[in-house]
Each structure stands twice: as structure tokens, then as C-alpha cells.
């Protein structure tokens, strides 16, 4: 099921477990699906020089980022036999322990969803202009870099 329209992937704040649960429930009507796979990115309370990360503040070059997310979607549908896929990424403050990225892929069969999910998550990390300010408990900060 291809979707040509560019979607807005961004959500303000953390992605709640209710939102994730509802997304799963919505797929019960799609009975050609035999396998779902989900990636949840969670903000880690890294300790750097004795200071603990308490939250990440996300910003993005939103237009370019949504275009990139769209390209990744198109590439994933091209490469893998997927029934549907959904990507949500947070903007603004997400506290340690909360979810900032939700990727959800579905297919008739299981093998494809493992490969597809890894492809999509790695592409998001490498290609999408999202920026993360790691805020410490004392309100100082540093900038997160994906590696």
C-alpha cells in the first residue's frame, strides 16, 4: 500500500504507550498481515563526566526531514514486501525513559519485517536532519551525535 503524500512524522513531546497500543489495535482490521515488528527509541540517561542526561530536546529541519522520511518509506516499500509502515518521531522535550521514535512495519510474513525495520531505523539515524540537545540534571547541555 503505497502512499504518495508526504506525511508529518513529528509529534510534540514523548510518544505514549497508549498511542503505541492504539496503533497496534488499529491493525486488527488488516487481516492479510501475519507479522508486525516495532522499534521504539528510548531516551537514555547517559552519565557523562559525572552528569546524568535528564532529557533530550529535539529540533528538526522539518520540511527536509519529512521529505527524507518519505524517501525512506518509498525505499522500504520498494525493497520489502510490506503491507504498511508508520514512523513517528518526537520534537521538543523527551525525558529519560520516554519514547522518542516509533517505527512500525507490517507484512504478511515474518522474515521481511526484521530486515525492513533495521533498514528503516538505520536510514533514519543516518539521513534525517533531526537534532538532539542532551540536557543534564544541572540544566547544562551537550549535543547528541548519532554514530
Amino acid at each position: 500500500m503505497k502512499d504518495k503524500k508526504i506525511k508529518n512524522v513529528f509529534r510534540q513531546g514523548a510518544i505514549s504507550s497508549e498511542f503505541i497500543g492504539d496503533s497496534i489495535a488499529k491493525h486488527q482490521a488488516k487481516t492479510s498481515i501475519g507479522a508486525h515488528n516495532i522499534f521504539l527509541g528510548q531516551v537514555r540517561a547517559d552519565v557523562i563526566d559525572d552528569k546524568t542526561v535528564s532529557a533530550i530536546e529535539y529540533t528538526a529541519y522539518e520540511d527536509m526531514a519529512n521529505a527524507k522520511f518519505h524517501e525512506i518509506r518509498e525505499a522500504a516499500f520498494e525493497k520489502f514486501e510490506l503491507t504498511c509502515m508508520h514512523i513517528y518521531h518526537s520534537l521538543g522535550t523527551v525525558k529519560a525513559g520516554e519514547i522518542c521514535l516509533f517505527v512500525f512495519v507490517s507484512s504478511p510474513r515474518r522474515k521481511v519485517v526484521f530486515k525492513a525495520l533495521e533498514f528503516i531505523v538505520e536510514a533514519i539515524k543516518a539521513d534525517v536532519p533531526v537534532f538532539g540537545k542532551e540536557v543534564f540534571e544541572d540544566e547544562s547541555h551537550q549535543w547528541k551525535v548519532n554514530n
Binding site: I56, Y61, A65, L101, V130, F131, W143, N146
Partner: peptide, 28 residues
């Protein structure tokens, strides 16, 4: 550097009206 939302190099000609300076990506 992105020009009209596409990454470019230093040798690229300036042709677009929107240029963005993008620090290292940190999505996810």
C-alpha cells in the same frame, strides 16, 4: 549544507533561495 532541502557540497553552485547549515544528525 542543504540547498532547497538537498545536501550539497562546497563546489555546488548557489542556485536556490534556501540554504541550511545542519549539524550532526541525532534522530532516534
Amino acid at each position: 549544507i542543504a540547498q532547497n532541502q538537498e545536501l550539497v557540497t562546497l563546489e555546488t553552485q548557489v542556485s536556490g533561495n534556501e540554504i541550511a547549515l545542519l549539524p550532526p544528525f541525532a534522530g532516534g
